[in-house]
Simulated scan of single mutants.
Amino acid sequence: MPFNQYLEQEFIPDYKLNVRVSTFNTKQHLLKILIARFRNTPLNKVTKRDVKNFKHFLLENSDYGTNYAATILSTL
């Protein structure tokens, strides 16, 4: 199953039911970042190297601060 399909059809609906509305609203942007990065990658094909490269991207090539990058990664 592609990453985006899993998030959109499985994870997000379940997550939305189990957290407060304000928490879900806060996480929505993070989830969009993850979907954009790993969109069509099959879940079982996301590797440690992919996560490491994403971490480097967040810290070195984006406008995200260290804490926000850490929040994105912990959501992943």
Rank of each mutant, 00 (worst) to 15 (best):
L59Q: 07
Q9N: 13
R39Q: 09
A70N: 14
I72R: 00
L31H: 13
T26Y: 13
G65C: 05
I12S: 09
T26S: 14
L76R: 04
P2M: 09
I33F: 09
I33V: 08
K16I: 01
Q28G: 00
D63L: 11
R49V: 03
H29V: 08
A69H: 01
T47K: 13
N40C: 06
Y68G: 08
R49F: 06
P13R: 11
Y68C: 01
L73H: 06
P2S: 10
Y6L: 07
Y15M: 11
K16V: 00
D14Q: 12
K32Y: 00
L30G: 09
L30R: 04
N67I: 01
L17T: 00
L17G: 06
N18Q: 15
E8Q: 15
T66S: 11
Q5L: 12
F54E: 02
N18V: 00
R37L: 04
D50Q: 12
L76W: 04
S62G: 08
S22H: 06
N61R: 14
N44P: 00
T47H: 10
G65S: 14
D63H: 12
V46Q: 08
N61S: 13
T75M: 10
F38K: 02
L17N: 15
E60V: 01
I12N: 09
E10M: 05
L7E: 02
P42C: 09
L17I: 00
N18I: 00
T41A: 12
K52G: 03
P42V: 06
K27R: 13
S62R: 13
F57I: 01
L34N: 08
T66D: 06
L31A: 03
H56T: 14
Y68R: 10
T75S: 15
G65L: 04
I35N: 05
R20T: 12
L30Q: 10
Y15T: 03
F11C: 09
L73W: 06
T47I: 04
F38P: 00
I35E: 00
I72F: 02
F38S: 04
V51E: 05
N67L: 04
N53P: 07
I12F: 05
V46C: 14
I35K: 14
Q5T: 03
F3I: 06
A69E: 02
S22I: 02
Q5P: 01
L31E: 01
Y6N: 03
N40R: 13
I12V: 12
F57H: 14
S22F: 02
A36L: 03
R39W: 00
E60R: 05
L73G: 08
L59K: 07
K48N: 12
K27A: 11
G65Q: 08
N53F: 06
